[in-house]
């Protein structure tokens, strides 16, 4: 009798495997954690969008919890995301933009049209900083703590209800 029960093991294994794979079917492969969380913000040396003479580096992000938003004029979702970023700035969050794979003229025109919630925009025409951040599209948003360590990553669009539900709690969490 005991042996008979043992013979059911493969069936049991198959059922477990089936359940795991079935769950995998409904998972979104684009929804995954960034490899950069809990790491220092990567080193970079780039100019700002506003001033081609002004050079900035990673020290820009130290001293205060900062939300770094990667955007580009070519990115339609970034336009829809702008009102949420403006709201976050209004709520006292420090925002720094990364103008990713863009031209200065287009980037500036974008901010003129849709608003500018950013304290400063890092101009990244080659996408080199974006690459070091593991960015493969826009928008993407990173929360950097006062020590310059990446603490949270948001892939894609920050929806209107994400502001209070997700982003603000994360900002508060890393402020102390």
């Amino acid at each position: 009798m005991k042996r008979r029960v043992l013979l059911l093991l493969p069936l049991l294994g198959f059922l477990v495997l089936g359940a795991v794979l079935y769950r995998g079917l409904s998972m979104d492969p684009s929804n995954r954690d960034s490899a950069m969380v809990a790491r220092d913000f990567p080193e970079f040396e780039l100019t700002t969008l506003a001033d081609p003479e002004r050079r900035v580096d990673a020290s820009l992000l130290k001293g205060e919890v900062t939300l770094v938003n990667v955007w580009g004029e070519w990115c339609p979702t970034c336009k829809q995301e702008m009102p949420q970023l403006l709201e976050l700035a209004e709520r006292g969050v420090r925002l720094v933009g990364v103008d990713y794979k863009d031209t200065r003229a287009k980037g500036r025109a974008f901010l003129d049209e849709f608003g500018d919630p950013f304290e400063v925009n890092i101009f990244d025409p080659e996408g080199s900083l974006g690459f070091d951040l593991g960015v493969y599209g826009a928008p993407e948003t990173f929360l950097v703590d006062a020590e310059g360590v990446i603490r949270y990553h948001h892939t894609g669009y920050i929806a209107p209800d994400d502001v209070s539900r997700v982003i603000m709690p994360e900002v508060e969490k890393w402020r102390d």
């Binding site: 954690d33 960034s34 490899a35 690459f131 951040l133 593991g134 493969y136």
Partner: peptide, 8 residues
């Protein structure tokens, strides 16, 4: 590559 984009 893994450092930036993860094991994916």
């Amino acid at each position: 590559m893994v450092h930036r984009f993860g094991d994916y």
